[in-house]
Design a protein around this nucleic acid. Structure first.
Lengths: 215, 215
DNA sequence: TCGGTAAGCTGACGTCATGACAGGACAAGT
DNA sequence: ACTTGTCCTGTCATGACGTCAGCTTACCGA
């Protein structure tokens, strides 16, 4: 399934080559964290990796191509987010805890990968299919689980019929992602990190179940 | 208050100059809509405006500087969003209508300015103070009004005391903005525009009042 | 009508990133 | 040591960046 790693001109990459390739990806990751996406240049990434620009172009068509690669790796890690929701209950006190843990886990994941996720978000918003497929892939696990939870409650008659589970789930996930991206904005608004989380959890709980949590 | 428009080298811009300046801004706006931010070059903007790159640099330090200018204009328009909430009620059927109209108005505003707002969002997420101040300025009207609404209901005892109005308002606004940016993502998820809005309104209503709307 | 002055624009230039190629360096097997 | 295929880089043409001096245009007072 995982096709061999190949250079742009078709050669298969060996041990050493893969190492350089990965080093370039790592350096690019770092650069994305420390400077605006618009200003990340191939030459800087190459310098940081202790190699030449030509080497970069041997492995990636351009910066965007390398970013997609990193995002792919993040997407794989992101699959683990399902565990935050797998087999959880949304009723009673357990429901409140589920919401809290989801918020916690999600924000943590976003914080750890904020630089790359920012770029994916931008690409997706700009309408680039590759990026928004990737964004879907990353958010899929959480999104599906949430939608399932809503649909299940709906089947039991505990949530109104005219609610669209996918729309609710998607909106909640978008909210989590957006808030995670702009945490600094909140703090300059007078809302502290610690205060933010329970309020987010409240919104998630309300959205999924339609009711206030019992704490 | 509104300082005169000046060129980079300090001259005051006259009628003709302001026209060129505005033309450059308009062309930049268009370019942002049609190509990725990363690929927008000064030379293209200048060409599109029927002028030379040097002229661009007479009015703006770089692309980013010009973007800030456009965003400033959008922020001014954004102040009108307050009207969506000014003097509205959040109780009974009126509450449901308030939520619907807010969602409608907000999405429309975002749709009309999506290109520039995307860039502002990116800049803010990257931690650039100028951008996230601008983002706050744009969202302030809605955010404050929402926070006030929550605080008011809270004072009446209709919302729990441990809710932080600013956090709730900020999260809801972030959600609206994020969903607006990624509407295409939803449709490829099987959620239609028309279905999305009422579900968003539901979430807003739930968030503000803590209760399901009466329709 | 006629300069004078400031605004407005651009050609040209040095600098730097891009992306391609050909060829040298290197490791591994024989 | 020799061959083979991988891996890296020097070099180059191209084109964007950002600056400057200098030309053109518009305005204004005499």
């Amino acid at each position: 399934m995982t096709g061999q790693v190949r250079t742009v001109d078709g050669r298969v990459a060996g041990r050493r080559g893969q190492a350089t390739r990965q080093k370039l990806l790592d350096c690019l990751s770092e650069m994305l964290s420390s400077s605006p996406y618009r200003d990340v240049k191939v030459i800087d990434v190459a310098r940081k990796a202790g190699t030449s620009p030509a080497t970069f172009y041997q492995y990636f068509p351009d910066v965007e191509g390398a970013v997609l690669e990193i995002a792919e790796q993040v997407a794989t890690e992101g699959a683990a987010l399902t565990e935050l929701l797998e087999g959880r209950s949304w009723t009673g006190k357990a429901g409140w805890q589920t919401a809290q843990e989801l918020v916690d886990g999600f924000l943590e994941f976003w914080r750890k990968n904020d630089a790359i996720l920012r770029v994916v978000d931008l690409g997706a918003a700009e309408g680039d299919k590759r990026f928004y497929k990737l964004r879907m892939k990353i958010l899929n696990s959480v999104n599906n689980s949430l939608a399932d939870a809503v649909a299940e409650l709906q089947a039991k008659g505990r949530v109104d019929k005219d609610v669209n589970p996918a729309a609710i789930a998607g909106s909640l996930v978008a909210m989590l992602a957006a808030v995670a991206s702009h945490q600094k904005g909140f703090s300059s608004w007078g809302v502290k990190q610690a205060e933010l989380k329970p309020n987010l959890a409240l919104l998630v709980h309300l959205g999924v179940t339609g009711r206030k949590p019992t704490k």
